[in-house]
Design a protein around this nucleic acid. Structure first.
Length: 583
DNA sequence: GTCGTGAACGACATATACTATGTAGTATA
């Protein structure tokens, strides 16, 4: 993502927050417009810094006023309107909004009636028990605000969690709740189900006749640190890992409506509800209902509800209100990746960090119904890599195993090369070319600038042995930022050399990211979905790679390992140069 | 604020739960 895009997003979000404060009420059309604009920008792939006013206004949701603000920001680094609002509502005051339970109304009243301008003032007012005199406040709210304030000062606001942390965490809680008598189903929803790479909280949906026992079980879980709110059907807790978990219980007949509601996104839901209203119905988390008769139109499954609304089923990963509803209405949603016919980034115990032996990996791949399996242990350029002799020995084992297997599964001998700081690769070209498949990846020197990073990756792609670039940006979600790259040049060279880009399914990586994939989508580049498995049970990680590609609306025709096994085999065995496209 | 229709102006508009207080704010998708 270019910095300009992030700057524009920050500007719009701040404008929305400040305008909400300024208008001191329910979000106005202006605030909604800022939010719409920010969503429109977020799903833009191009570099905003290069767009003219006219180009900007072509984006739906960006009018004259927002286009001007974007240009003002790009040209001068500031936006006049934002500066004025910032002066009116200083950062100190806005930090009050981060306290759980304090919204714009309360913040404004605290300032108007008690002169509270920031955290320090609030602390003082609480000590003096001044809040209870205000309309809408009482002893209880003083107590709760005091606690929330202390937590904020001790821990800061709850931060977003990477998917790799949140998903297993959700599974742990779900396993406990599934064990509660009377629970017929339990699933994660929200941004986790939409497969966003970081999530603000974990949303769990439980189907059960009685909610009481579920709530009781939840609040008494060992991993729960505190209870934020507890009601008849909805309870929110914070776990000891500092992640908020919201649990909602519904009866099984309402599961479909509840799944849609709880999966979101918010703007996807709003669009669905508008669609319902246009048909004389209302949609809430319980059912799609006829407004006149009160009769339920659909509620039990998500598919029924989408169908009733004249839509094909929208997979959760697409529910971001980026055109999926319009596409579903004309039955033109992007195609799913479907069953995969092979994996092209798999380690065995030959790598220092691999844990399953070759034979176990092969039989696990057969169980997954693969037609092709490519073993790619680390080359000597990485810490866990190995020398030529070990790889040649592995090759002999693979060939022998292939003879035993016959034709059902094609085994390829590959290797994961390390891309050095200047683009140098392991071994010599002759030895590299003796492999069926080479993936080359960046594992170090993350500090180089964009020109140097681009140069090393491009040089690796130009090597005749390199068929795929592994985890292109080397990022770790919530940890290491992506290396800076001139993506346009990378895509262009990938296409010109016939090099595919990996979509790595390891949850901390998900590299290429959705953002990069969106930018690459129209550039004629091919992608391979991989697991980067270091253990047999990790082969399934390739399904996460598929979800990531689907989120980016990548068409499976660009992804060779979604093709039938024979077509895939033929593609892999053809020389790299035959896949090159002139640009 | 944007957008569509017709060239200035109206339309846009989700639905619900929980909490503390006594009607409304805050929060969630």
């Amino acid at each position: 993502m270019s910095d300009t895009k992030q700057d524009v997003l920050d500007m719009l979000r701040e404008l929305a927050e400040l305008t909400t404060l300024d208008e001191g009420g329910a979000p106005s059309f202006r605030v909604r417009a800022y939010e719409n604009a920010s969503q429109a920008i977020a799903s833009q792939a191009t570099d905003l810094g290069r767009l003219s006013r006219k180009d900007l206004q072509k984006i739906s949701g960006i009018g004259k006023s927002t286009a001007d603000k974007i240009l003002e920001l790009v040209d001068t680094g500031r936006v006049q309107k934002l500066e004025v609002l910032r002066e009116k509502y200083p950062r100190q005051l806005r930090t009050l909004l981060r306290i759980q339970g304090l919204g714009p109304k309360a913040v404004l009243r605290l300032r108007a009636e008690l002169g509270v301008a920031g955290i320090e003032d609030l602390r003082r007012a609480l000590t003096l028990k001044q809040l209870r005199g205000l309309k809408g406040f009482g002893e209880k709210s003083e107590e709760k605000l005091g606690q929330a304030l202390t937590r904020l000062e001790e821990q800061g606001p709850l931060e977003r969690s990477p998917l790799s942390v949140a998903l297993p965490h959700a599974e742990r809680v779900l396993a406990e709740l599934r064990a509660v008598p009377g629970v017929s189903s339990a699933a994660h929803c929200g941004s986790l189900r939409r497969f966003q790479e970081t999530v603000g909280d974990i949303d769990l949906l439980i189907a059960a006749r009685a909610a009481g026992p579920v709530m009781e079980a939840l609040v008494s879980l060992n991993l729960v640190e505190r209870v934020l709110a507890r009601g008849d059907t909805k309870t929110s807790v914070v776990t000891k890992r500092g992640i908020q978990v919201d649990v909602r219980v519904v009866v099984p007949e309402q599961l479909g409506a509840a799944m849609i509601y709880f999966t979101g996104s918010k703007s996807h839901n709003i669009k669905l509800r508008q669609r319902a209203l246009a048909r004389g119905w209302t949609l809430n988390e319980y059912a799609l209902t006829d407004s006149a008769s009160g009769k339920v139109v659909a509620s039990e499954s998500e598919a029924e509800i989408y169908e009733a609304l004249g839509l094909v089923f929208v997979p959760p990963v697409l529910r971001e209100d980026t055109g999926e509803i319009e596409a579903a209405a004309v039955r033109e949603l992007p195609r799913p990746m479907g069953p995969l016919s092979g994996d092209f980034h798999v380690h065995t115990s030959v790598s220092g960090d691999g844990r399953s032996p070759l034979e176990e990996m092969v039989s696990a791949a057969r169980e997954r119904g693969y037609g092709v399996l490519t073993i790619t242990d680390h080359a000597e350029g990485t810490l866990s890599g190995v020398d030529r002799a070990t790889l040649l020995e592995q090759r002999a084992r693979i060939r022998a195993l292939q003879n035993e297997l016959g034709g059902s599964l094609r085994l390829l001998h590959g290797v994961e090369l390390n891309i050095g700081p200047s683009g140098e690769l392991d071994y010599d070209l002759e030895f590299r070319r003796s492999f069926d498949w080479c993936v080359a990846s960046v594992h170090s020197h993350f500090e180089l600038d964009a020109a140097a990073q681009t140069a090393r990756v491009v040089q690796a792609m130009r090597d005749p042995s390199v068929r795929m670039i592994g985890h292109l940006t080397a990022r770790m979600i919530g940890g290491r930022p992506p290396i800076p790259l001139d993506l346009n040049e990378v895509f262009q060279v990938a296409r010109a050399t016939g090099t595919v880009l990996e979509v790595n399914g390891a949850l901390p990586r998900l590299d290429c990211s959705v953002d990069v994939l969106r930018q690459a989508r129209e550039q004629g580049v091919h992608f391979m979905l991989t697991s980067d498995a270091h253990h047999t049970r990790e082969l399934a990680l390739v399904e996460f790679a598929a979800l990531n590609a689907e989120r980016a609306w990548v068409d499976p025709s660009r992804v060779p390992n979604t093709w039938p096994a024979e077509q895939l085999s033929a593609w892999v065995m053809a020389p790299k140069a035959s896949h090159a496209t002139q640009v």
